[in-house]
Amino acid sequence: MAILCNRILLTGAAGGLGTQLRPFLRERCNHLRLSHLRPIELADPSEEMATLDLADFSKVLEATRDVDAIIHMGGISKENTFESILQGNIRGMYNIYEAARLNNVKRIIWGSSVHAVGYHKRTDVLQTDCVTRPDSLYGVSKVFGEGLAQYYFDKFGIESVTIRIGSSFPEPSDWRMLSTWLSYNDLKHLIERCLIVPKVDHTIVFGCSNNDQSFWDNSKVGYLGYKPKDNAEDFRPNLESSVTKPPYDDTVISYQGGAFVAAGHFEDK
């Protein structure tokens, strides 16, 4: 396996996607620095540990030192209070980019979300440069991150790939995921392409597999060379036999953000 970087920082290394990416990235760099709130047991001599809270700038600055690329999967992963999202996803995102600037990190690949565009109807076919329509405070934080990534490229030349992740799980577990599913293998392929392509500026790409019912169009970012192979349709028979299909006008299936659109404002709960 070709070594793509000397040192990669993976934030959120103990999370669902971080756990999947960890061995994959370890094969593509000489040193893999793992970031998480709590210490993680190292599995290989090439791994390093950076225990930190993303809201702590001094710790983030230290973790990004001598790093060639950052795979940023850390932060709050679902709807929460504004204060929690502020610290983990807004302040934390700023800290990643500002520390990268100070440490001359060349590329950041990070997980945005479908929830940045969740208020679009499922009948809308979205290009990567579509208008953002966040469906939650979590989605708002992802819109902030996308704007920050653009700013740090325009102002400071830090290249980024923003991946609007749909639903990355072992298999689709509801009917909406027939459109939004991103297999782990396709996620890894996308991350690899984001590391390989010589110049990406600030690119936004939808993170989804080769699903027949996809409502996302990545044709404007074909230069990434992302060619997903998996298809959520393979799991349709299982869904048909085990999961009741919602009415076509049910919010959880009629909007791209699904249940995030249907849910009330988190602070009111």
Rank of each mutant, 00 (worst) to 15 (best):
residue 84 S to H: 14
residue 129 D to R: 11
residue 107 R to Q: 08
residue 115 H to M: 11
residue 106 K to L: 01
residue 142 K to G: 11
residue 132 T to Q: 10
residue 140 V to H: 04
residue 93 M to R: 02
residue 91 R to E: 03
residue 99 A to Q: 12
residue 130 C to D: 10
residue 85 I to S: 09
residue 127 Q to E: 09
residue 134 P to C: 03
residue 152 Y to S: 01
residue 95 N to C: 12
residue 116 A to P: 04
residue 88 G to F: 15
residue 132 T to V: 13
residue 91 R to M: 04
residue 101 R to T: 04
residue 134 P to V: 01
residue 83 E to Q: 14
residue 134 P to S: 01
residue 91 R to S: 03
residue 106 K to R: 10
residue 139 G to P: 04
residue 141 S to I: 10
residue 134 P to M: 05
residue 125 V to H: 11
residue 142 K to Y: 09
residue 93 M to N: 04
residue 154 D to C: 08
residue 114 V to N: 14
residue 150 Q to K: 13
residue 151 Y to Q: 01
residue 133 R to Y: 08
residue 104 N to K: 13
residue 99 A to Y: 11
residue 137 L to G: 01
residue 148 L to Q: 05
residue 116 A to N: 01
residue 140 V to K: 06
residue 87 Q to C: 10
residue 136 S to H: 15
residue 143 V to K: 03
residue 91 R to H: 00
residue 116 A to K: 00
residue 108 I to D: 05
residue 133 R to Q: 10
residue 96 I to V: 12
residue 110 W to L: 00
residue 146 E to N: 14
residue 107 R to I: 11
residue 97 Y to Q: 00
residue 153 F to H: 07
residue 135 D to L: 15
residue 88 G to V: 14
residue 115 H to G: 07
residue 136 S to P: 09
residue 123 T to E: 08
residue 102 L to C: 01
residue 153 F to W: 02
residue 129 D to I: 07
residue 143 V to L: 02
residue 118 G to F: 10
residue 108 I to P: 00
residue 102 L to K: 14
residue 89 N to L: 00
residue 151 Y to A: 07
residue 108 I to S: 00
residue 106 K to V: 03
residue 144 F to N: 09
residue 85 I to F: 08
residue 137 L to K: 00
residue 153 F to Y: 14
residue 108 I to G: 03
residue 100 A to G: 06
residue 131 V to F: 06
residue 97 Y to W: 11
residue 121 K to A: 07
residue 149 A to F: 09
residue 90 I to P: 06
residue 137 L to P: 04
residue 130 C to V: 14
residue 113 S to G: 02
residue 126 L to N: 07
residue 107 R to H: 09
residue 98 E to I: 04
residue 96 I to H: 06
residue 128 T to L: 06
residue 117 V to D: 13
residue 134 P to I: 02
residue 83 E to Y: 10
residue 152 Y to N: 01
residue 108 I to M: 05
residue 139 G to C: 05
residue 114 V to C: 11
residue 123 T to V: 07
residue 129 D to Q: 11
residue 119 Y to C: 03
residue 120 H to Y: 07
residue 149 A to E: 11
residue 135 D to W: 15
